[in-house]
Every structure is written in C-alpha cells, then in structure tokens.
Design a protein around this nucleic acid. Structure first.
Lengths: 159, 159
DNA sequence: ATTGATGGTTGTATCGTGCAACCATCAGGG
DNA sequence: CCCTGATGGTTGCACGATACAACCATCAAT
C-alpha cells in the first residue's frame, strides 16, 4: 500500500501535514531570539560558511534561494560584527570569498551547542531505534527536493 | 537506551536537527507564494477560524504567540478582502467574533486542497506503516511543547 | 575591442512583526 | 453610583528581512 490510496494513509498524511507545519510555525516564532548577537539568518549563513570552509555570497544566495541583495546586506552586517571576513580571490577580482573569523567561529560554536542541547532535551527519552527511524523519515521526506515542497500549512509568523 | 547517551543516538539527533531545520527553511521560502490571494499568515488564521467555527482576535494572538496588533492588522486585511466578517458579541461589546465568509471558506478550501495534493505527491510511495510511524514521531516531537522548542538551525529565510 | 555573462552593492518598496500608547467596554468594590 | 483595574482591540512608530531593479566592476569569449 502506498500513500493516497487508503484512509489510514490519508489520516497519517494529514497529521504529517499538520505537524510539519506546526513545527515550521514555532520555528519561525523563535527565529528572532536565537542569540542576542546572531539572528537565525546569520546563524545559518555562518554555519554554511563553516561547512564549506568559505564561499561566495552568490553561493549562499543560490543555496538558500535568497536574493543576492539580501545576502549582500546580511554579509555586510556579519562583517561589521566581526564574525566573517572577505578575502578577494586573486583568480577573479569580482569575487569575495567569505570566511569565518575567530569570533565568528566562536559564536557559531556557542549557538550550535545550545541548540544541540535543546534538541537533546526535546528528544530525551526516545529509544534509539525511534530516533534512527525518525531521522530516516525526515531524510526521506526532504530528499524529495525543494521543487515539490508544499511548505507549511499553518505558520502565520512566516508570512 | 535513550537520547544523548550513545553515539548512534547522537547521529540521529544531529540528523533530526538538520532535517527539521531544512524543512523550516524551505517552508519559509515558499511561504509567500502560497496563493495569489492569501499569504501564509492569512491562510493559517483562516484555517484556525474554520476549525474553531469562529473566534476572537485575542484567541488567535494567544494561540500563535503573535502580538495582538499583528493579528488586528491581519484581520483587517482579511476583512477587507471579504474573507472573514466580524460579528459583535451581544454578551460583550468589546468582543468581535470572527467568522469565515463564503468567499473565505471557498479560498481556504482551494488552498488546503492544493497543499494536500502537494503533500500527497511528496509522500507518494511510502508504505502506510511508515506514514503512520512518521506521523507518530512528529506528534511526539511537537507534543513536547513550545517551551523547549529549539527552533530551526539552518533557516536563513526565516529571519 | 566589443559584447555578454557574472559577482556584488545600493535605492526603493513591501510585508510581518513588536512595543507602546490609546480608547472602549466590562466587572468589582467602596 | 462612581472609581479602579482588567480585557479586547486599534493605531502610531520603528525595525528587520526580503525582493526587484538599476547599477558598477570584472571576467570571458569572440
């Protein structure tokens, strides 16, 4: 049996719809108070920089489906805060390769750690088997790609 | 074995962290293009009104942790668009009970249907057993309450 | 050398949001 | 019968994130 061909599956899908959406709503609501020094957007961009070990503003824009002007301003703010630095690419003078500074790495680590703790608390008591399955489902769900993402259905604070 | 006491669980938690977060990011990115006539916020509020069969602006604000001024403006917009109507409460002249209009019900149904289809497509091919388990995990995760919600960790478009 | 593509910045506008101040109404006690 | 405080709602103001468009600088290819 596959999705959309039975009422039991229908109920499950409705629940998934509703709950994913509820998560998105709360996520949005808590986006601002991530860290006094670091908005959620900034945190994300820093995390990406750390993962990649530096990249261009254009790469960030493409990866997060943001306008390049948006990224440009975010980057300016992060640079102003001393969390990232721009390094000009000798191979291409148009390009500014963005890198975390020591301060940026530090704050990113702090925020990541505190978020990790929060997730751990929320998932405390879950049997390992359930954690693994849950993670697997999420991976599978997200792997379908952004193209078919229906988005949240119940997230007022996201508008 | 419970969360946070083993490396296998650690890996699963990291994955959950990352994937929930990826969902929130895409959700936010697609929030604007939900419907030409209906932002995501509006859609949510309409949905709530339908569920409850009418409620007060204050209830909406409390439920979604929004400022009452924010709700007030959203409600004004929805009323202007003819999707909801205000009915004064004879028991309390301060109160305006909000109700969907026929047009509001119509548009809400349209958007809900299209979102349902999108979710179905994304979940097509999942065995019913997996759907049920996934739904159960999401319920369990969200049931922990907003208080301990760590929020997304990778959602720039959410800021 | 010209032309088109690419990386980035800036001006402008919009939208959602929160805070604070405010008004109207209700409920309780002197 | 008024005061006083609580509650529902609106409005003024400011902020932050975003997109679009116009623009400049640089590169690549012909």
């Amino acid at each position: 049996m596959t999705a959309a061909d039975g009422t039991a599956a229908d109920v499950a899908i409705e629940t998934i719809h509703h709950e994913m959406t509820a998560f998105a709503r709360r996520a949005r609501a808590s986006a601002g108070r991530l860290h006094p020094e670091l908005s959620l957007v900034s945190y994300t961009l820093l995390g990406h920089l750390e993962e990649r070990g530096g990249c261009r503003a254009t790469d960030l824009a493409a990866h997060y489906a943001l306008d390049k002007s948006t990224v440009s301003r975010q980057v300016s703010a992060l640079e102003g805060a001393g969390l990232i630095e721009r390094r000009s690419d000798p191979q291409d003078q148009r390009v500014q390769v963005l890198h975390l500074t020591a301060a940026g790495t530090e704050i990113l680590a702090q925020v990541t750690a505190s978020r990790r703790v929060a997730f751990r608390e929320r998932l405390a008591g879950w049997p390992e088997e359930d954690l693994r399955r849950f993670a697997g489902y999420l991976l599978r769900y997200n792997a379908a790609g952004p193209g078919t993402d229906p988005g949240p259905a119940d997230s007022p604070a996201t508008g």
